[in-house]
Each structure stands twice: as structure tokens, then as C-alpha cells.
């Protein structure tokens, strides 16, 4: 019960911290002092107090979409276990619901973007749905590997499989899947090298350009939702990268928080040392993710 409580509390509170850590890491690399680690929390509080300006062109979809997106991602977050603990929501086949909740959030984010009738937001939406066509098969290959390894179709058991397996036979495929999932993490959360959250040119954006017209609390919900998505996908990746368990609950939770911050640092390092790819090369990166996860499955079945 306590663990479930901690799970929900972390899911609600921790995500904005990750973006602070990423930005701090990037600032360190650039030799700047950078914004405070808690900057996103300040932004969210500020946005929650602000008013809203709405485009005349939009319908109810525009205002409802951020809410649906955030709810879907939160629900998905309840299915992903954190560290060695059970997730609050777990049932046979929840892995499919997890993947499709992410798709639901994408549906409404892109629909809201088209609701404004602006070419920029349409462009961002088109890129988002196009790249998702390549990241979904990669995600499913990764899920197939975990399902095969654990012999279970419950996300909690599947993600705990690397913890239990520990054999050399599965190590090779886990390395490949970890690589594939890391690419997915960057692509799904619109980080460099797929998308640059700090770019100043709307023409080249993916995620940021879709939400240009949202303001006030709506923008706050979107920013928060994006942070939660980063948190949830990182939690999935952590099971494969750090399959460790200490036995003490307190130690395990602090270990999990530490790992999570390390992931944020890793994302920050990638963003600092890499340039973003040309838009036409993004698909090659995603196809690489499909191949990594696919070969992971083949290695497992060998």
C-alpha cells in the first residue's frame, strides 16, 4: 500500500524535475549557469494562474485535448512499475493498453494542433504522426522480447523479467532492446536528435510547434503532460538498463529516484554533444530502433 502511494506521489510530483536536470546538464556543458532545477515547477504555477487566449477558429477539441492527453499518459504511468515494486494497475494484456494510451494522447495532441487551422501546427502534427508509425513497431518488438523473456503479458512482470533472468542468453537481446528503447525515449519525447525543444524556428519543430496556440493553464497541462511522458518512458527503460534490487524498500525507492535523475543527465548529455538530425534522416534513426528491437527478439528465439 505504501509502495502504491509512493508510486502515485512520484508520478505526480517528480516529472518536472527531470526537465530541470536535463536543462542544468545542458547548461553545464555550455558553460552557463542555467535556469534553476525547479524552473518548470515555477512555470507551471505561473501558467496555472494566468488567463487563456483562444483562437476563434478552434472548437471544444482544442480545449479538451490537453486534458485527455494528460489523463491518458497518467493512466499509462500507473501501469509501469517503478524499480522492483508492483505497479498500481496491472492485469493481463495491460501492455497493449499502455501502448494505445500513448497513441490516444497522440491522437488528441495532433487533432488539437489541426484545430487551429495554422500551417505550422499542421506541419508539427504531420511529423508527429509520421514518426509514430515507425516508433510503434519498435515498441512492439521490445514488448515481444520482454513478453517472451518473462512468459507473462502483465507489464509489471514483463519489466521485472531482466531482474529475474540475469542469464547470459538474454543479455545480448536486452542490450539491443535498451538501445532501441533509448531512441524511442528521445523520439517520443521530442528530444535531440529527433526534435529540438529549444529551437527558435517553428518550421523545424515537432512537439513545440503543435502547442503554439495553447496558453495559460492549457499550456501548463501540456508541459506537465510532456514531462510525465518522459518520466513514464524513462521508468520503462530503467528496468532494462538497471535491473538491480537491494531488498530494502527505502533503498530501492531512493535508488529508483537516483536512476531516474541519471537518465535525465544522460538525455542532457546526448542533447549537448549531438546536433539534431535533418528531418528526412529521422526516419532512419527510427528504423534503426525497429531493427535493434527486432534483432533483440531474433536473438532471444535463436
Amino acid at each position: 500500500m505504501t509502495n502504491i502511494f509512493i508510486h502515485i506521489a512520484l508520478l505526480l510530483i517528480m516529472p518536472p524535475l527531470l526537465l530541470g536536470v536535463i536543462n542544468k546538464t545542458k547548461a553545464l556543458f555550455a558553460g552557463r549557469r542555467g535556469p534553476p532545477v525547479l524552473q518548470l515547477y515555477y512555470d507551471l504555477i505561473k501558467l496555472a494562474r494566468k488567463g487563456v487566449v483562444i483562437s476563434q477558429v478552434t472548437t471544444w477539441v482544442f480545449t479538451a485535448a490537453p486534458v485527455i492527453t494528460l489523463t491518458a499518459i497518467m493512466l499509462a504511468g500507473l501501469m509501469v512499475p517503478m524499480g522492483p515494486f508492483q505497479s498500481p494497475v496491472a492485469f493481463t494484456g495491460d501492455l497493449i493498453l499502455f501502448a494505445y494510451l500513448l497513441a490516444l494522447s497522440r491522437f488528441f495532441t495532433t487533432t488539437a494542433a489541426l484545430d487551429t487551422g495554422s500551417a505550422f501546427e499542421g506541419m508539427g502534427a504531420a511529423r508527429e504522426v509520421t514518426f509514430a508509425c515507425l516508433s510503434e513497431p519498435a515498441l512492439f518488438f521490445a514488448l515481444l522480447v520482454l513478453a517472451k523473456m518473462s512468459g507473462s503479458l502483465v507489464l509489471t512482470n514483463m519489466l521485472h523479467a531482466p531482474l529475474a533472468a540475469g542469464s547470459q542468453a538474454s543479455a545480448a537481446s536486452l542490450v539491443l532492446v535498451a538501445g532501441g528503447l533509448f531512441i524511442l525515449l528521445l523520439a517520443e519525447n521530442s528530444r535531440i536528435p529527433v526534435d529540438d525543444p529549444n529551437t527558435h524556428l517553428e518550421l523545424t519543430m515537432i512537439h513545440e510547434v503543435m502547442v503554439l496556440d495553447h496558453s495559460g493553464p492549457l499550456l501548463g497541462i501540456i508541459l506537465y503532460g510532456a514531462a510525465v511522458k518522459l518520466f513514464v518512458l524513462s521508468a520503462v527503460l530503467l528496468h532494462i538498463v538497471f535491473p538491480f534490487q537491494s531488498g530494502s524498500a527505502l533503498l530501492d525507492w531512493s535508488l529508483f529516484v537516483l536512476e531516474m535523475l541519471l537518465t535525465a543527465v544522460a538525455v542532457g548529455v546526448v542533447e549537448s554533444v549531438m546536433a539534431r538530425l535533418q528531418m528526412r534522416n529521422v526516419q532512419h534513426l527510427l528504423i534503426a530502433a525497429i531493427l535493434l528491437c527486432g534483432f533483440g527478439f531474433v536473438l532471444l528465439m535463436r
Binding site: G51, V52, V53, I54, S55, Q56, V57, T63, T116, G117, S118, A119, F120, E202, L212, D213, G216, P217
Partner: peptide, 14 residues
């Protein structure tokens, strides 16, 4: 927020 009372304007479009 009260959508109907929020200011409505043209799309931002950069």
C-alpha cells in the same frame, strides 16, 4: 477558465 469569457482572437500563426 470559463471559455466563453476568455478573449478570442485570430490564430497565432507565429
Amino acid at each position: 477558465v470559463q471559455w466563453s469569457k476568455a478573449p478570442h482572437t485570430i490564430t497565432w500563426s507565429c
